[in-house]
Design a protein around this nucleic acid. Structure first.
Lengths: 156, 156
DNA sequence: CGCATTCCGGACTAATATGGTCCCATATGG
DNA sequence: CCATATGGGACCATATTAGTCCGGAATGCG
């Protein structure tokens, strides 16, 4: 349904937590406690974020994680690339697939346009924006028909 | 990975086929033959499209499907709503979930902004655009890192 | 009238993706 | 040298998605 993965959702929470704690390293346990996301999941996500450079880690006792670069230089697209895989609405690239032979697949170009528009939107939002408590935004009614996917609700 | 479902992908092909055959009704078999998508799948998708009004059907011998309204009045968002479910990047709406209590979930507002941007992009593209053979667009290198998801390739 | 054709509705199975957990290795500081 | 942490990956459970199939109802034609 064109939605991001739960991992990405958690990942942004984790990153926001690191933004709030910038200056000090956080262990995975700290992050888990702060975000209420299960520890093993936090560990998994932090590893992914570390490998990509969005966060840096120090090992050993007194080790932990901290943000790898300023929050306003990390875009939502960066986060999605790391945790959700590259954004690709669709890709009809195989040059000799049957659908091409049928000459009914000229659709690709327009999907690319859509893909670009999404990409731009994701590039413009930074982690700093996400961390900003924009709690009560005027939700201008454009989320018509959104189903409650209800992420992040651990039944405790 | 923020990608549309295969059903939606096939669905656009089917709709484009109907656009190309506008004026005459097409049976499900016709569409399957024209698009090279397996017949049962075509039937399933055409049912969904019919129920939503994007295509109209006539039953009985000599029956079939045709476009329900002009191609330039059907947006990509319409198609996605029908075949992919409503577009909802994420929804953190549950008012008393733990993550809210932790005050780390102020992320919602920004996701809504992204959601809106995507919505706009999807609203602006019409089926007529998708049907237009824009085969050789200058793919301006903005699909960096796209993995080849390679839909639509039946191994025959 | 009866039959072939074609859509209608839904059930069902199989394949795939995702989420989540766990284990062992490695590094580090006290 | 031991407690604390991360690093890397295997692993299984579950949810989602794809895809198929079947019986039923409508319609046109001989």
């Amino acid at each position: 349904m064109l939605r991001i993965s739960r991992i990405t959702d958690y990942g942004t929470m984790i990153l926001v937590h690191l933004v709030a704690s910038s200056g000090q390293v956080c262990s995975a346990s700290d992050v888990a406690a702060g975000t209420r996301v299960a520890l093993p999941t936090v560990q998994k996500i932090l590893k992914l974020l570390t490998r990509s450079g969005l966060v840096v880690s120090s090992r050993g006792a007194e080790g932990g994680y901290s943000l790898g670069k300023p929050a306003d230089t990390i875009s939502a697209a960066d986060i999605l690339d790391v945790l959700d895989g590259p954004v690709a609405i669709t890709e009809c690239s195989h040059s000799d697939s049957q659908c091409e032979l049928e000459s009914h697949c000229q659709v690709g170009g327009s999907w690319q346009k859509i893909n670009k528009a999404i990409r731009v939107a994701l590039d413009e939002i930074t982690l700093a924006d996400l961390a900003r408590p924009a709690r009560e935004l005027p939700v201008q009614g454009l989320t018509r028909g959104i189903t409650r996917t209800v992420h992040r609700i651990e039944r405790e």
